[in-house]
Design a protein around this nucleic acid. Structure first.
Lengths: 135, 135
DNA sequence: ATAGACCTTCCAACGATGGGAAGGTCAATG
DNA sequence: CATTGACCTTCCCATCGTTGGAAGGTCTAT
């Protein structure tokens, strides 16, 4: 199949498939006489693996590691679990960070009357005004 | 003061101050005869505003809008609140997304025995194997 | 033959930041 | 006065993952 169909079947855009090939995440496929890339079910399977890993927030590099482990039948699953666990920690750190932002902003929005008066606690906060107590 | 001190006082790196100037987020400051940028407390105040907005996860573009509203004494605070509310929604969407990843990954890690056997539910999942029921 | 839907490579952009080179300037010291 | 080291200037490049487009070749159907 051509790259377009491989893209459709894997959920990875043709652009990205070429990019993944370029950076060595996937190997270069066979070409037709007219230089078209030709993919089979195996390649699509790999692309789907990549798509899923990316969806789960693994970086392309981490995805490459997971892919190598996937292909390595003798790997220790502990290694995979470590990568996943580390990744979960990173995700949770990010979540906590975003939640901190939401908390601060929610407080400010709550304090902001939101009518047409120019007085605005949100801008006051951004400008560095000391927070008033008791909401 | 020079850019270095402005950076130190505002928490925005000298690199970024120049970048913000380049993209028009802040206006070009006065220069000395030797072409050094000269900043005063007002500029530092603006930079701190920017720093705070960025820390709260606003994009540089959103920060520019907030900055304009800050300078506009006649603005409606409702407008600011809308920007903040929209931003909170975006943050919460992102959080939910990350939490979905964590949930899936946690489940997989939980299912993964993590010893030296090559059988690994995480890789099975990434490879698209149907999930087994009852953990 | 021609249209239009594919494919190819190459180049650039995004957003925000950091790194570094090559060179000018300032302050303090020997 | 000269040197040193810390600062400043502009300019270009890299990151990460992805998308867009241009310019051109190929395939299929009418």
């Amino acid at each position: 199949m051509n790259i377009g169909e491989a893209a459709e079947q894997s959920g990875v855009s043709a652009k990205m498939i070429r990019y993944y090939e370029q950076i060595g995440l996937v190997s270069a496929p066979r070409r037709t006489d007219s230089n078209y890339r030709v993919y089979g079910d195996d390649e699509v399977h790999v692309l789907r693996f990549i798509k899923r890993a990316r969806t789960l927030g693994f970086s392309v590099e981490e995805t490459g590691t997971l892919l190598a482990l996937w292909r390595d039948k003798t790997r220790a699953s502990a290694e995979v679990r470590d990568i996943a666990s580390t990744h979960i920690e990173a995700l949770e750190t990010k979540i906590a960070e975003l939640q901190g932002m939401v908390k601060t902003l929610s407080h400010l929005v709550h304090c902001c009357h939101g009518d047409n008066r120019p007085d605005c606690p949100i801008l006051d906060d951004l400008a560095g005004a000391p927070a008033r107590k008791g909401h």
